[in-house]
Design a protein around this nucleic acid. Structure first.
Lengths: 222, 222
DNA sequence: AATATTTTTTAGATTTGTCTAAATTATTTT
DNA sequence: AAAATAATTTAGACAAATCTAAAAAATATT
């Protein structure tokens, strides 16, 4: 079975919006995809008849098992291309997403499996997100948000949960990227902002809005 | 300016059909693209309004200067991807075309220029066809068809002018691919077939229909 | 040169994915 | 609980790219 670019974009967006539990609403999806709610309803009907979606009128929706499998395939393609662009073509971290959005819709299983092999079966993309394998299995970092880690422990940034241009701008400004080692020096309970230090540099402040999206893991001794 | 996948496929097909001189007809293009002639006429009108085509009703057509530039851009993308698939992902010679057909429609100038660099600015794809550079310039082999080369001179296959599955099947059967060194031992004027020998192997016969599409160049001393 | 055949174009329909405007259902407020 | 507001769906339209069937133009045949 193969799906149109448009169907794939809907499936991917639904996957990202539905967490482990919750339902997704028409308006959320319409905002995410920048289409009108009426268009979303049309597509929902279509995906339902293809059994990719559990959906009843006015009730919200989630991907079915089959839908989730399809989503993982798309995400696999997206993240492998991101890895390729970053690692091999030397695109910068914040440029890869847009191009990968196009490449992910090229459907050839052989292409993706050979690309995976060529890249050395990477398990995480340049944003720190896990890359599903051929069977849809995804590795997991034991990762935590910097809002909850103990003070004065150096850890390594491994994931950024919001990849809008605005967010990437702030992170770039503060020299934070995947792999950056940092520690939280102080928490301000008034606004939940954090004082961060990278290496021996001058510490700086991160608002809660930003901090919520920055995740770290233990430093792996190599 | 950017063009739909469909427009790009028409432009590319017209480029291939129009040689250096001749006009292309609606039926030829319809056969090439496996669409109905009526659909071709619709697209011709559209490409004409976009000034990519010199076209008058019932008169046949050719690409305009602008159209040719667009075509060279598409061909550049196609052939760079073919090179990538063959060289880096180890696809076999006869598998690359189909996948490259999809990849060629990903439009990011930066992607293509970085890919070009990553591949070491190759000048010929795995089929021996030249890859246009950023400016649309194409290198040319001094190549000739095996139907016209002198007897008993070993030369190197550098191009196959027909890349259908049927053709590739015959070539594979006879162990001919880009880079193969062969000589013509005899010409049979009755049916214009050729007796070919590769190295010290047993000679074999190639029909004119096949031979017409096999091109060779002088062996470069390295 | 008149007729037959082939090629090309026109006219109108279809599919996919989108839209606007209006109607319906659900949720929130008073 | 009724009214107001918000979310969702329906109905009908549109653009892109295709199709079929019929008309028009070009070419070939007798």
């Amino acid at each position: 079975m193969t799906y149109s670019t448009s169907e794939e974009n809907y499936i991917k967006a639904i996957y990202h919006l539905q967490g482990d539990e919750g339902m997704v609403t028409t308006n959320e999806l319409s905002a995410e995809l920048k289409t009108r709610p009426a268009s979303v309803t049309d597509m929902l009907k279509k995906l339902k008849t293809k059994k990719l979606l559990n959906y009843e009128k006015y009730q919200g929706f989630r991907l079915s098992n089959d839908g989730r499998k399809v989503a993982l395939g798309i995400i696999r393609r997206h993240r492998l291309w991101e890895f390729f662009l970053s690692e091999k073509l030397k695109f910068s971290w914040d440029e890869v997403h847009e191009v990968a959005e196009q490449l992910e819709h090229v459907t050839s299983k052989k292409l993706i499996d050979k690309l995976d092999e060529f890249l050395g079966f990477p398990r995480f993309d340049p944003h720190g997100d896990p890359i599903p394998d051929q069977h849809g299995k995804i590795a997991t970092h034991e990762r935590v948000c910097i809002t909850v880690i103990p003070l004065n422990h150096v850890m390594e940034v491994c994931h950024v949960g919001n990849q809008t241009a605005e967010m990437l701008d702030i992170l770039k400004h503060n020299d934070i990227s995947i792999g950056t080692r940092l520690e939280v020096r102080k928490k301000f309970n008034f606004d939940n902002s954090l004082e961060i230090r990278i290496g021996r540099h001058q510490p700086f402040i991160l608002s809660e809005a930003v901090a919520r999206h920055v995740w770290v893991k233990k430093i792996e001794r190599s």
